[in-house]
Computed example of a mutant assay.
Amino acid sequence: MTDVSDRDTRLDDDHPTARNYDRATVEAVGKLTEALETLEVARGHLYQFHRMTGTTDFAVGEAVDLLREAGHDDLADRIARELVGRNVLPGRWTFQVVEDFDDTYYQPFRAFERQARELTGGERHLLEAELKRERRSRGVAGHEATPDEQVR
């Protein structure tokens, strides 16, 4: 275990210190940024759903062709008519869901997070930068403050 005296509490060049702002504000902005990071993952899953649903629809189209080749025209016709190109929600394909999500929730969320960061000088990840300062061990390889710092 590293002695507390070996902890590097100096400022990194890459990030201003959170100590320049009140702790409650830094924590609040950090929490909003954390929420945005979670939303980014959710958005990625939504885009994955969009892509996978489209891939599914094209596979169903291929299955329809194969059913026809196998002589099952009635089932192929019904699937082609009722399932191929079907809305995933009333009146919507997934691209519309993605667009509505982006316009209705994602873009406003990003704007509020950016606005909240103005309370801390517009800097990103101040809370994490403080954690790095507190938790890294001075002079230990793999604990450099910046990519330019070299530990020997």
Rank of each mutant, 00 (worst) to 15 (best):
Asp100Ile: 08
Asp12Asn: 11
Ala116His: 01
Glu34Val: 01
Tyr47Gln: 13
Thr55Gln: 15
Val98Gln: 04
Ala80Arg: 14
Glu123Trp: 11
Glu99Thr: 11
Gly121Leu: 03
Asp22Gln: 02
Arg110Pro: 00
Ala145Tyr: 04
Glu149Asp: 12
Gln115Arg: 15
Asp148Thr: 12
Asp57Phe: 01
Glu130Trp: 08
Leu83Gly: 03
Arg110Ser: 05
Arg110Glu: 09
Val140Asn: 09
Val26Cys: 04
Ser137Pro: 04
Thr104Pro: 03
Asp100Pro: 05
Tyr106Cys: 04
Val88Gln: 10
Glu37Gln: 11
Thr53Ile: 06
Arg51Gln: 13
His72Asn: 15
Val88Leu: 07
Glu113Asn: 09
Ala70Met: 07
Leu46Asn: 00
Trp93Thr: 08
Ile79Cys: 08
Gly44His: 00
Ala70Glu: 09
Phe95Asn: 11
Val98Trp: 03
Gly91Ser: 09
Arg81Gln: 11
His72Gly: 12
Leu11Phe: 07
Thr104Phe: 07
Ala24Lys: 11
Asp14Phe: 11
Glu34Phe: 07
Ala111Lys: 15
Leu67Val: 00
Thr104Trp: 06
Leu127Val: 09
Pro108Tyr: 06
Ala35Met: 12
Tyr47Thr: 05
Glu82Gln: 06
Arg81Ser: 12
Glu37Asp: 14
Gln107Asn: 15
Pro108Lys: 05
Ala42Glu: 00
Val97Ala: 00
Ala18Met: 04
Arg117Lys: 13
Glu123Pro: 01
Thr56Lys: 13
Pro90Tyr: 03
Asn87Cys: 13
Ile79Tyr: 08
His143Ser: 15
